[in-house]
Design a protein around this nucleic acid. Sequence first.
DNA 1: TTTTTGCTACCACTATTTAGGTAGTCTTTG
DNA 2: CAAAGACTACCTAAATAGTGGTAGCAAAAA
Lengths: 209, 209
Amino acid sequence: MSNKQPIRVFSVDDHPLLREGIATLVNNQPDMTLVGEASTGAEATQQFRQYAPDVTLLDLRLPDMSGIDVLIAIRSEFPQARIVMLTTFEGDVEVQRALQAGARGYLLKNMPPSELLDVIRQVHAGKKRIPPEIASQLLEHMSDEGLTEREVEVLREVADGNRNREIAERLFISEETVKVHIKHIMEKLGAADRTQAVAIGVRRGIIQL
Amino acid sequence: MSNKQPIRVFSVDDHPLLREGIATLVNNQPDMTLVGEASTGAEATQQFRQYAPDVTLLDLRLPDMSGIDVLIAIRSEFPQARIVMLTTFEGDVEVQRALQAGARGYLLKNMPPSELLDVIRQVHAGKKRIPPEIASQLLEHMSDEGLTEREVEVLREVADGNRNREIAERLFISEETVKVHIKHIMEKLGAADRTQAVAIGVRRGIIQL
DNA sequence: TTTTTGCTACCACTATTTAGGTAGTCTTTG
DNA sequence: CAAAGACTACCTAAATAGTGGTAGCAAAAA
């Protein structure tokens, strides 16, 4: 039973050097082959159809679109697709959304290669694999249910240095309503003021600067 | 004259996958050899003495210390060291400090491998090499001379959601002085309020969340 | 259908921030 | 040594932000 088909791996990342590293690593494994590479979301969905990989390594941030959107696009067409999200850092909001969207694994790019190989094998075997340090982060913020769409929108305006009156004009609502939104944002994020709300929002990946 | 010694390259980065990619790429060039790798600042300075590389690729963010501090440490011992900074993103403050500290090149990690090889060869030949998109960013903010140490300190406190009174207590100065600092910070960064000052500070790499 | 959630809006009041100016001390630079 | 920059401090006044409570409406969920 040692003559199984190798795991067909597909890598999507806009860092050529990192792709090169993944390629070298994967192709050095007897039970894996890298079948394709893509550097944008558009390429990714297109090449997925072409190569039908067993496991896809998908960067969270791509030049043309969010990795999560790519994930959703691929899974809407291939619901059985096994996709592992790869990212440089740890905004827990993104993790949560990725898992809800059907990611089978989540990896930080600074992890040892053995970890990556392990996750590929586990995910290929049908399991899910999320590293404990990420999982614990998730649990930590399960309680504070996320911001609503509108609240995120307001938070973005706040981060741009707009005052409440300006935000009101830009979003076509009253200044009082803006205050209400900001109050809720601060409550949910546990922020003392709007500035810390922005800081926390960035740290958690709710908004990006 | 085709039988030159190969360029001895040394790579310092805490991302194993990226190091693997660099290693593969460099070792595939006829005129280069990778002579060593390090993943922390401590390892880096130690191994630099050991390997005496021609060109060093140094990540800006390392787990134990800033890449700039490593740069300074190495160059204080080996002033002729040719070091290229590598980073994922573009906070122009860091670039400026790295160049002032004697970096010979500055590269974003998402650049094509050919660019990396090009920079290695140019820097080895004694030239400096900064990509135009980074150089232009530098010029853009040359005018607004940077924040002072104290101002950066205050900006960090602001980002933590502290009010002026709290910042005053934490820094053992009067609330009025805090106001003055924040006023100067906003002027220098071109921010409309403290919140935007934090946002801009993060974007420029002055502070990190 | 009743309940909940999200978005909207207003009021009153307090707290905080921002803008403007002046000025002393110390260190670094020319 | 004079000049410049950095840090400190105080004052006044206006603008903005934050707190707390009430409430209507529509859509989604129970």
